[in-house]
Design a protein around this nucleic acid. Structure first.
Lengths: 345, 345
DNA sequence: CTCCCTTTTTTACGTATGTAAATATTGGCG
DNA sequence: CGCCAATATTTACATACGTAAAAAAGGGAG
């Protein structure tokens, strides 16, 4: 529209006849200004086009009202769900979220951290890359601002606030289910690049032994260089089936994307995993990837509570930002997984 | 590490004995400073921990070196791929990317636009929401800064720079393929909330008529309120198959996620779409969603060149930012789709 | 009408850096 | 040794707003 554009608060002050400090207080919190004056300001604002400068606003405030969020990958609906949950929670708390993606590159992750520090964000939330990460980056953030890790945690980062899934519980749950209904599962793992995958593998082994079964882990060797989860799952199971193995077994995949690939391998061998057939060939996953209900067969899995994780991460960060912590012991919040029974197991 | 922390350039100047303006020039571009001095500064920087303040840096520059990017959804790997391409291209151009997601909410989209203006970003790239968007938001951005739309474009926004797919070509390509190899396809559409879907529908109809076939469009009525693409595709095809229709037809879905749902519906009716069976039941999609190769059967589709779209959007935006345009006619860049022949059709 | 309290305005300074102009320094060369 | 050019430093001001203190204005109660 043709509203006159006003660039600074000074000009605005002149235009609507209210002093600049009063305007400043109005933009921070209208309740600090007398209702009568508020009305005058709002009437004036309706007349012009003015947006306070973001940088000038933050330059001399004690709090920027921003938090930084780093996720490792964009092309994974799990992180995307987590990010959505975080962004909504932060928005409800009135925070501006600056999201950065590492794109699988530790150097980019490090740069994102620098940016956050440089922006004086009130706090940072990071879902780390796998092994590759330079953990000095996390320690740096940890030492400079309120900091919470999400999803997975390097085993060398024990003194940090963390929010994630209890993989011992979640993996135990599905191992127990698979053992209860049919054959004890083998575990389709992946190359050791992901902390969570390792935790799940360990949880699988522990639960199997607890139940008196012999654990069996597959797929820890790299299949091809720039592998994707689905391709890896498909390749590993395909090799097994081609060798005449596993056709009557249950297969627990370290995550759903591996399972999607495994299902494809099975289908190409004429096998249709399913729980209908007692004791027969079954495939299960972990995470409850959004597409699980929509594939053939739909994938039995154990859901991570991404929504709870995102909300908790934000609320914990806010708590650390506000500074009213009874003690400064790092808080580890682990949410239980829940069984999603579908067709595949 | 125990490096002393230095907060301002003034302190840094005192600490390493180089004047502040020189430091300022050094941080903007070391080549503006004599190599000898550069060495001295770098030696000093290695001794301390200093990061220039992001806000102060941008406050008084003519260019902030930032661009804003808005995408409508996070939980869709198509947008995620596009965003990745954009972020990488921008990074290579030395730009800081501020990403905001609309989360299907026009109010959030509008707020994101305000944030960009308030941040003095050098330019904005937006993939709009569907119908719901308040188009005043786009016009506002368009009038205030270099602005390029991506992916889809409201038909009322004709005077804007746009980068996307040539849906007439891409849809025509797969319609032609389907007609050539077997039965002319019916079109599985979706409720009219998405501009691209409409373009594809129109392209389908045009190509069918060109080839002398009668177009048939399904699924334009809303199935349930908070529908997802997969569920919609599944529900629509399920209804048809249950009514004894379409079992021998070819089905072209407006996008791959609909197709994934359609395949599931087919499977549950004992139908396995495939191109092996000449003239038989087939399902095809549009987009080349990353999971297409991994489902059962793998999905034949037409790929959007998200990488080219992202790169072009960034380069066009840079061109507008630099301001050296021979004329100011909006540029419309449409990339062709390419056929991805897989198992389903 | 005056006093007192609340709110606003005025004034002034702070935030961390960019930027331009004037001045000083340095190095190379004749 | 001295001059010129390149570079660095000094000085000063600019960016747009936050914030605090002092002064002024406004409004209600007595």
């Amino acid at each position: 529209m043709g509203k006159p554009r006003i660039n600074t608060m000074e000009e605005l002050s002149a235009a609507i006849g209210v002093s600049r400090p009063t305007l400043s207080r109005f933009f921070q919190d209208p309740s600090l200004v007398k209702p009568n004056t508020v009305a005058r300001i709002e009437a004036g604002l309706a007349t012009v086009e003015y947006i306070p400068n973001f940088f000038a606003t933050r330059l001399n405030r004690k709090s920027t009202g921003m938090i930084g969020v780093i996720i490792p990958y964009l092309n994974d609906l799990f992180f995307t769900k987590l990010l959505e949950s975080v962004e909504i929670a932060a928005m409800e708390a009135g925070l501006t979220v600056i999201t950065q993606c590492s794109h699988s590159d530790p150097a980019i992750e490090a740069r994102a951290a620098e940016t956050f520090i440089s922006m004086n964000v009130d706090g940072a939330l990071v879902a780390p890359l796998g092994d590759h990460s330079d953990q000095a980056v996390y320690r740096r953030l940890q030492s400079r601002l309120p900091f919470v890790m999400m999803d997975s945690r390097p085993n060398t980062m024990q003194g940090v606030d963390f929010v994630g899934t209890n993989h011992t519980q979640s993996t135990g749950l599905i191992v127990e289910y698979l053992c209860r209904i049919g054959d004890p599962p083998v575990f389709l793992a992946m190359p050791r690049v992901n902390f969570n995958a390792l935790e799940r593998e360990a949880a699988y082994i522990a639960k199997m032994e607890e139940l008196g079964f012999k654990p069996q882990v597959l797929g820890t060797e790299l299949v091809n260089e720039d592998w994707h989860f689905e391709k890896h799952g498909e390749a590993v199971l395909n090799a097994e089936l081609s060798a005449g193995r596993l056709a009557e077994r249950s297969i627990l995949c370290a995550n759903d994307r591996l399972a999607i690939g495994a299902i494809r391998a099975a289908t190409r061998h004429g096998l249709f995993p399913g729980r209908s057939k007692e004791g027969g060939f079954r495939i299960a996953g972990h995470d409850d990837y959004p597409l699980c209900p929509n594939i053939n067969p739909s994938l039995t899995t154990v859901a991570q509570d991404t929504d709870a994780i995102g909300k908790k991460a934000v609320s914990r960060l806010l708590q650390k930002i506000s500074g009213d912590l009874s003690d400064d012991t790092p808080e580890i919040s682990l949410f239980d997984g829940s069984l999603m029974l579908r067709e595949s197991a």
